[in-house]
Computed example of a mutant assay.
Amino acid sequence: MLRYLPFLLVLALWIYAFIDCLNTPEEEVRGLPKLAWVFVILLFGEVLIGPVAWLVAGRPRRARAAGGPAPARWVAPDDNPEFLKSLKDDGAKTDEQLLKDWEADLRRREEELKRRETGEDPKDG
């Protein structure tokens, strides 16, 4: 069982480096273009050169200077108070108006259907 451990560690590092490279924004990649790093990781993955090169030379540095501004982080819409507020402001008005329009259209269609059933001609007025 232990003889498979080195293979699994190499595979885990290769997969980690590959996914990390794919998820890194193009403008944050160092050294080579992102596509070149993908090829380096894929071609030299089994001898550890590609993944280690990515981690050392291509991966963006995550550490920030003390006191510097925090990097912008993605926030899920349901955790973003600004997004939720915009839904309440814009969405409530348009939804109410849309509902009123649908109700008016439904009433008009119901009246038209009743006229057809009773045999009245809507053109006669």
Rank of each mutant, 00 (worst) to 15 (best):
L8K: 13
V38F: 02
K34R: 07
D89S: 14
A12C: 09
V47P: 05
I15R: 14
I49A: 05
L22V: 01
L87V: 09
P6S: 08
M1Y: 13
I41C: 00
L55N: 05
L98P: 07
R3Q: 10
W37G: 00
E111G: 09
W37M: 00
W74C: 05
W74M: 07
T24L: 02
V10I: 08
A72L: 11
E96H: 15
W102E: 15
D101A: 13
E46Q: 13
E96L: 15
S86H: 04
K100G: 03
G91Q: 07
P25A: 02
K93L: 11
L48A: 10
K85S: 08
D101P: 07
W37I: 00
P122R: 11
W14L: 06
V10Y: 10
G67N: 02
N80Q: 01
M1E: 11
Q97P: 08
E27K: 10
E111Q: 09
I15K: 14
D20I: 02
R3F: 08
P25M: 04
D90F: 13
G58H: 00
R30C: 00
E103F: 15
L106I: 10
T94C: 11
I15N: 12
W102G: 09
Y16S: 11
L35Q: 01
R30F: 00
E28D: 09
F44K: 03
F18Q: 06
L106N: 13
P25F: 02
V40N: 01
F18M: 10
E112A: 09
E111A: 14
Q97R: 15
F18S: 07
L13R: 10
L35H: 03
A53W: 03
K123Y: 14
P71E: 02
